[in-house]
Design a protein around this nucleic acid. Sequence first.
RNA 1: GCCAGGGUAGGGUAGUGGUUAUCCUAGGGGACUGUGGAUCCCUUGACCCGGGUUCGAAUCUCGGCCCUGGCCCCA
Length: 413
Amino acid sequence: MPILQRPRGTRDFLPDEMEPRRAIEDVMRETAGLWGYREVGTPVFEEAELFTIRSGQGILNEMYVFEDKGGRALALRPEITAAVQRMFVNEAKVLPRPLRWFYFSDCFRYERPQKGRYRQFWQFGAELIGAGTPRGDAEVIMLADAIIRSAGLSYTLEIGNLSFVRSLIKSQTHEIRHKIMGFLDKRDEKQLIDFLRSEGLIDLYDSLNHLIKATQLDEIFQVTGDIPEKDDIKSFFSLLDASGIEYTLNPGIARGLDYYTGMVFEGFAEGLGTENQILGGGAYRLAHLFGGEDTASCGFAIGFDRVIVALGLTNTRKGPVVAILLTPDGENKAFIVANELRAAGFIVEIDLYSRGLGAQMTHASKGADYAVIIGKNEILQNKVTLKDLKTKEQSLCSIEDAIIRMKSFDNRG
RNA sequence: GCCAGGGUAGGGUAGUGGUUAUCCUAGGGGACUGUGGAUCCCUUGACCCGGGUUCGAAUCUCGGCCCUGGCCCCA
């Protein structure tokens, strides 16, 4: 029947869904603000090259790319980090560092939709630019944790550092390193062994295997020895431990791309099926790829839609909702009373049809908590009739009394 | 890109080749005109799209689109 349908992988949001989304978004913004992070915005579309520089030509297949009328190769943003770094290079070279920025934006990827994966989706993320210290790394993780928890979601946090694995395979070619990291990330032991064997590197297996199964820092450094990053890594983790943040050490977390510099972390929530990762982040260096000064950064992105799915849609409208019912005599008065009630903070809807009180009451009962009736009697006595639609109690009282009674809405259960 | 299961009014559904496609709910109109959140009456509204088989297709078949879940990917 519908002539037009939504593009694949996109969604419409009715008020019952939009309102809790906004509420959670607001909480996240507020939390980020408390940490001194300030919101930034970037264009919905960018030069496609911005993203290929970051992630390689392969992502062209997974983006919405198009040519504009001037022949420019553009892409809808598939993520925000590259754009933020580009913005940093373009606009913010001289701002005092570190920069603490966050964003909440929709992104677009041309992928097969499934649970928690859409072609238009929202990311809440933050970037700390110009710190490059254990404290900075720790702050970013704590911020991510605070934001997710402020949204009311419980999740599991895994933290690793690419230096561990890299120290063991640093003499290998880029391609071999990349493959090994991939197998480790997937925890695919069999493929890892097969690959190492085929490359004649099977003697690496013991140490790699030890490493990714380690649960304590000491065990890790027993495998890697005294790598240059050791002191920083230790002070980073001692900051986290002191903060009381809950996490597990995962030395196997890998990233396929070279600009990640060390600390990496991921977060997972339940109730999401395959796509259960709600958080990803780490320390990186990207600015120099966009023509800027080489600058240490650290950031994360939260999959906002997955957070919403994991939380489940809860109650929506902040009550109480007041419906104004009126007879023709009460029309003028009804609009005045409506505004007085709005000024007092209530959500007020006035009946717009000339229908009987019964029909108005029927309608009111579907969405409102209180009915306020304004008719001839009320005008003569300069009062209103207040009906509690839950308890069905009704009384004639002044507007002031009505306000006082309805204010107790939240307490009455 | 691959695999599986789906797609019937706004929502939920019945319907295994044969009259006018079932029921609930919702929406609209009316009765009613100071409480009927009721009740009653009327009404709107659907077989995802396109080919094929057939006298006849919602039903069988093929292709596409979309949904759900999984694989791949995950910046």
